[in-house]
Design a protein around this nucleic acid. Sequence first.
DNA 1: CGTTCGATGCACT
DNA 2: GTGCATCGAACGT
Length: 222
Amino acid sequence: MVVRTRKTEPLPPDFYAQPTLRVAEALLGKVLVHDSPDGCASGLIVETEAYIGEDDPACHASAGRTARNAPLYGPPGLTYVYFNYGMHYLVNAVTEAVGFPAAVLIRALEPLDGIALMRARRMHGRSASACRAVPDRDLCRGPGNLTRALGIGARQNAMPLWSGALRIVDRGLAIGAVVTGPRIGISVGQDRPWRYWVASHPSVSGRRCRPESGGRSQSGSS
DNA sequence: CGTTCGATGCACT
DNA sequence: GTGCATCGAACGT
């Protein structure tokens, strides 16, 4: 019984046909991979958010089915990629059952493979010096940043995550403690604690977790 | 260190 | 025309 190689099995479609909160938590520690013509890039999922049903005011389906949000109503395990703020793509994994609109937003990754490629993609349209200053841990920090680093765009919308170029796999990697709290970046539905992240992980978005002691934050300079 | 604000395109009212 | 599941430069403390 050797076969102790790194597992790279994609999560099966059934994985996504579960309650969205369970999927959102279970996706932490899995690996999002994109094989593109430019090369392969991947990262460990360390932050997610759930968007559940037409009753969720922050869910894109809150106003009913439209052309844009149609993938939310489709089969679980497909992507829902959309364009926001005129410049960012955001990627979701569709969950639950056909006809019920719900998904998990991937908000942050810890870069694993293809770090040079990620940095090259994020360099697009900005000065080389500014890009060189971006630490590895920030390359996929935030939902807009990770799609840029992985080369995810409108062409990846409504694509299966269990096969094909863009997929989520389980490599059996261990993660730290999981924390939950309110979703961020939204103006409604903030009462629902449907955001999940790995505690104290440096690639999680939002306000940076301050290091334990040693940092003097309240000193009046001069 | 913290907070504010402009960029930028598209879906939807 | 309005508002958005964002980002980072610019400014104030």
